[in-house]
Design a protein around this nucleic acid. Structure first.
Lengths: 123, 123
DNA sequence: ATAACTGTATATAATAGATATATACAGTTG
DNA sequence: CAACTGTATATATCTATTATATACAGTTAT
């Protein structure tokens, strides 16, 4: 498990940990039920407080990427791909909702929006 | 010029002023070159600092809704409707850009997105 | 010209939210 | 029981947002 903290990066430590582990899960470098380093050992490695690693793990758990067994450890959860897909579909729907509102205020028809969409998708 | 400040509203005072004036311009209640109340008299009416009313006016000016003549006053600007339309079109394009990225990551085709869009627009 | 108004610029106070932490706790394992 | 696991609560620090006061400079009407 390689995690690099970049202090110049602007984004908070917990977020860097969160993203890097998430990416390793998505890319397949970490597989279902693989154990993650304990929040304390990872914190020791990175020389930060374990509360910060816990926060990263909390985020990962809230989003369904890992599961926790108290007093034992944290593990990669199943069906991440489905979960990610659902997440993205929901975001698409939110964007569409916004577009519908804006299009109405602009007097744009469905076809107008579709042609904008088609134009964007051809690149 | 009627402006109401709602302290329970959560949104900051300068933003409430900004939105209400913007809405009055959009609705046509305020017309091109109409004078706005001076930042100081409005502040007096609302019993707040004139710095706060200035901030609201600054926002309105930055977005092109009003123009200012120093030492004279602030006035409703022209071509707001075109400007608003451009703004909204740009926002639509941004949303479309996001959708394109998300759709690619989900393996959604152009037609899939269109049918989602069509579904949403029929309500 | 001067009093009363306009907007401007700079500096500052107050608050809230985000970030990172320490410490004390409770369960698991060998 | 020693050494590990994650949990819960409280706290410190910092930053961005919000609102402000004060001093300044131009315009207008008397």
């Amino acid at each position: 498990m390689n995690i690099f903290i970049d202090n110049k990066s602007g984004s908070p430590i917990y977020d860097q940990i969160y993203s890097q582990i998430k990416n390793q899960i998505i890319s397949g470098a970490l597989k279902e039920d693989d154990p993650l380093p304990s929040i304390r050992s990872l914190a020791r490695d990175l020389r930060i407080s374990f509360i910060t690693t816990k926060r990263a793990y909390d985020e990962l758990e809230k989003e369904g990427f890992i599961y926790t067994i108290p007093a034992k450890g944290c593990y990669v959860a199943q069906k991440n791909i489905e979960l990610l897909r659902e997440e993205k579909l929901q975001k698409i729907e939110e964007h569409i909702g916004e577009i519908v509102k804006l299009a109405a205020a602009c007097n744009l028809s469905r076809d107008d929006v579709i042609s904008m969409l088609t134009f964007e998708m051809e690149e």
